Simulated assay, not measured.
Amino acid sequence: MAKPTTETTPLPDFPVTIVRELDGHFIHDDINLKELIENTRKGLILYFYPKDNTPGCTTQALDFTEYLNTFDDLGYDIIGVSRDSVESHEKFIAKHDLHIPLISDSDEKLCQYFEVIKEKNMYGKKTLGLVRSTFVYDKDGTLTHAQRNLRAKGYAERLLQTLKA
């Protein structure tokens, strides 16, 4: 399977578990990313973040929730991805009233495909961690924009400006 490194890389044919809240209940959908785009005929923004309920990740999720309708008007669905469990995602969504679905990638297969787990230096100690990254696919499932090592604050608005341009 080709890695998402060029703008011609297609969305992977990849099974995932998506967690979303609907009318006060949590829904867990086991779906295929490629089928998701084929079924909605919309573009897809996959954003990878390190951990539920941490300051930067919460800021980013709240920003994407705030601009959800604007992204929808431009023809994009938004899905967050982290290595957290389904249960952690449920708590994160409920605590912050998030309106974006989240993918639980606890086995790190999606993270490995997108090559977002890198060595980080945390307080002088080297560890492997998820690097905040975003991948934008058009309605045909073709990668149109990829960005890694992002700053969370204000990123949703910056991405909107890029997509409008």
Rank of each mutant, 00 (worst) to 15 (best):
V81L: 07
E119P: 11
V116Y: 05
E115I: 04
D72L: 12
I31D: 08
S106L: 13
Y47N: 01
L98C: 03
E119G: 11
E90T: 04
L102T: 01
V86H: 12
E119T: 15
I37W: 09
K118G: 03
N32F: 15
I37C: 12
I117N: 10
K51H: 12
N149M: 02
T65W: 06
L143V: 07
A152P: 01
G56D: 10
G80T: 01
H145E: 02
F135N: 03
D77F: 14
L128F: 15
L143A: 11
Y67L: 11
D63W: 06
L110I: 03
P55W: 14
I117E: 09
I100M: 06
T127E: 14
T142F: 13
C111Q: 12
S104W: 06
K118M: 04
Y49F: 12
Y49K: 00
K153I: 00
E90A: 11
H96D: 08
D77E: 13
N53F: 13
L159Y: 03
P55M: 14
H89D: 03
D30G: 09
G56T: 03
V136T: 01
L143R: 10
H89A: 11
E115M: 13
F48W: 00
L163G: 08
E157A: 08
S82F: 03
C57I: 02
L128G: 10
D138V: 03
A152G: 04
I79N: 05
I79F: 08
T54P: 13
I93D: 01
L160V: 01
D140I: 02
F135Q: 03
R148L: 10
F48E: 00
T54D: 10
H99I: 02
V131N: 00
Y137K: 10
N149A: 11
R132I: 00
T162K: 11
L74S: 08
N69W: 08
L128N: 15
G154L: 01
L150S: 04
K126A: 14
R83C: 12
E119F: 14
K139I: 04
N149D: 07
T58D: 07
K91A: 14
P101A: 12
L46Y: 05
L130P: 00
I100C: 07
S104R: 06
D138M: 08
I100Q: 02
L68Y: 13
Q161F: 05
H145G: 07
Y137W: 08
D105F: 08
I100W: 05
K51T: 01
S88E: 07
D63C: 10
G154T: 00
T162E: 12
Y113P: 05
L159E: 01
T134Y: 06
